[in-house]
Amino acid sequence: MGIGWQNAVIALGIALTAVIYLHLSTAHTQKLAQEHTNQMYHLSYVPGFFKHDQQPTGPGFRAKTLPALGLLDRTYETDPDFDPHREKSQWERFGNYVAHLNRASSKVQYKVFYITRHGKGLHNVKEDEVGRAEWEAYWSRLDGDATKEWIDARLTEQGVKQVEYLRDFWRHAFSHSQVPPPERYYTSPLTRCLETVQISFTDLDLPENRPFRPIIKETLRERFGVHTCTKRSTRASIASRYPGWEIEPGFAESDELWQPARRETEEELKNRLLSFLNDISQDHATIISLTTHSWAIRGLYEAIGHPNVWPDAGHITPLFVRVESG
């Protein structure tokens, strides 16, 4: 009888601990999701400038990096004064047009996002092996199998090659297409994104006034919970692997958002991305690099009204955004 009661007390203690953990984690998730209600900015995508805006939506099509990022061949109202003889590149004329828009109003600003989906990760390989249904039901909840580990998944060899191609793409785009380098680099804290942004922009001839110093943002991470590939490493581990990178203030040492039995809802994801967008709208940079995940990109698109174009792994999609304050 005594041992039975002891076991019952232990079991009750474990259950209460789990309930408290779930409550605290859920409260933290809901706080992130609700921060969008205090927005200082309204963001919307501006159509008619990039080919990606016109591409098919849904999972049957995967958007890939296009030459010169798919900037449409078109004229701008600023062309007659800036380039009367059409001697400048499309990107030079577009950049001048964006600068003109940003000078026109202090309440409305325009930004260009270079959105990169990370290269192929070890979790993607396992899902390919077993199929989506079995991955969702069983394997996604494990840390790995007998041959690989996908908790906070790293890039595969194929994923590394994909982002090495992105580095070559950027080198050509900067020098031949006059695509402007990013003024700011934001990235998810998950390892596959950290590896992607590091490889993509290493050994490039970047302007001194636009140094490569990524800012790691919790709100730019993948839809979290249940799947172990969405659980991030500790702050100390990230800082030791990427010295000199900026980790945003308030970034917890351990992952306080990921829960083994609860996944972030799509609505919470969209609201979290709204919070992220509201945060970086205070950044005066016009050209901004975002390195993130498939779910996060789709949540971002939904947040600003962009068509639901699914990005392929290791590819870049541009986005022209209007930011209105007040």
Rank of each mutant, 00 (worst) to 15 (best):
L43I: 03
A252E: 15
K88D: 04
M1R: 06
K88E: 06
V125Q: 11
Y301Q: 15
T202C: 08
E149Q: 12
I287C: 06
N308M: 14
A303P: 06
L24S: 10
P260D: 10
E183R: 04
G13V: 05
Y185P: 00
Q158T: 13
W295N: 11
F212C: 04
G314M: 09
N96S: 07
A173H: 03
G2C: 04
P249H: 07
D255K: 04
R103K: 14
H100Y: 14
T234A: 08
A133T: 09
D312R: 02
P189L: 14
R192D: 10
T116P: 00
V309E: 10
Y45R: 03
Q54F: 10
K120V: 10
T147G: 00
R103A: 13
E92D: 12
L206T: 01
D283A: 07
G121L: 13
Y41P: 00
A313W: 04
L12P: 00
S289A: 15
D205A: 14
V19D: 09
Y21S: 09
R263I: 09
P307R: 12
N209Y: 10
L290F: 08
H315Y: 10
P56K: 03
L257K: 01
T265Y: 12
G95A: 07
E268C: 08
E268L: 03
A8F: 15
P207M: 09
P67H: 10
K148D: 13
Y76D: 03
V130K: 04
T26G: 03
T228L: 14
I216W: 11
E92Q: 14
Q198A: 15
V9K: 11
K51Y: 10
E92H: 02
G131I: 01
E183Q: 15
L69R: 00
R171P: 01
H306N: 02
F49R: 00
P318W: 15
E92M: 08
Y186K: 00
S237Y: 10
W91N: 01
T317C: 12
F212A: 04
H306I: 01
W295L: 09
H315F: 11
F201R: 01
E129S: 02
I287M: 13
Y165K: 08
L71M: 06
T57W: 05
E256H: 10
T57M: 11
A11S: 12
D312H: 11
H123R: 04
D279C: 06
K161Q: 14
I297F: 12
D152C: 06
A236V: 02
F276S: 01
D73A: 11
R232F: 09
V19S: 07
E157R: 03
A239T: 04
T78H: 05
K31P: 00
K217Y: 09
H284E: 15
V179E: 08
S105W: 07
E183K: 05
P207T: 04
P318N: 13
